[in-house]
Write a protein that binds this DNA or RNA. Structure first.
Lengths: 113, 113
DNA sequence: CAGGATCCTCTCCGATACTG
DNA sequence: CAGTATCGGAGAGGATCCTG
């Protein structure tokens, strides 16, 4: 009586959560643990502070990323994956794996033979 | 001597391939087999012909989708997953699974308790 | 039926300057 | 350091008309 998979209707939802130029990049870093805002900014090459803030807000609103403010003198904010966010680690791994393989096969082909 | 996963650098690549409003939706249909252009258009609610064409072209260029022209009187074109495209079926399944679960947990929380 | 061309709108995203 | 506000360009994406 379970539906098995007769459609992949929820796939759209993935894009709403992970869509945007930087979200996967951010997650691929938080994947390895808690990071401060500035660390993220440094590790994500090319991102502007504005976009980092925005994407982090989106991820926070989605319940994937945790925001923790620490009241130091120059304020410190740390971001990490929530419990829900952690559930997508295997998914991130598999996505990355697929991407690696796919890039290899396509580069072989375009190499001519 | 293998790298294990010490970074998820290829994740960016996923977005280049699957980014765009409709690509996952298209793939979630081609997942189940070959489809004609018009069938896709009908099954993807809200998509415009222009976007369907564009997204299909992108997917074709990426080597994920196959385009086959059949010389009937009103021309028929069929789209299907390539060999490379088929390799992402497990990925699509896992993405969908995660999305389903994630939507459940978040809807529970927003239900108040 | 499948797809091209054109026009138009809206959102994404970068750059910059400013606040606690 | 972390975040907000504003401006502006580029591209995504929609609607419509046209063609083989």
């Amino acid at each position: 009586m379970k539906k098995c998979v007769n459609n992949l209707a929820s796939l759209q939802f993935i894009l709403q959560v992970l869509g945007g130029k930087w979200k996967l990049h951010i997650l691929s870093i938080l994947y390895f643990g808690k990071k401060r805002f500035k660390e993220l900014e440094r590790e994500i090459d090319g991102i502007s502070a504005k976009m980092l803030i925005k994407e982090l807000k989106d991820l926070e609103a989605a319940g994937i990323v945790n925001r923790q403010t620490i009241n130091t003198v120059p304020i410190t904010v740390e971001y990490s994956l929530t419990t829900d966010g952690l559930t997508m680690k295997p998914l991130l791994e598999q996505m990355n794996e697929w991407a690696v393989k796919f890039q290899q096969t396509t580069s072989k082909k375009s190499a001519g033979y």
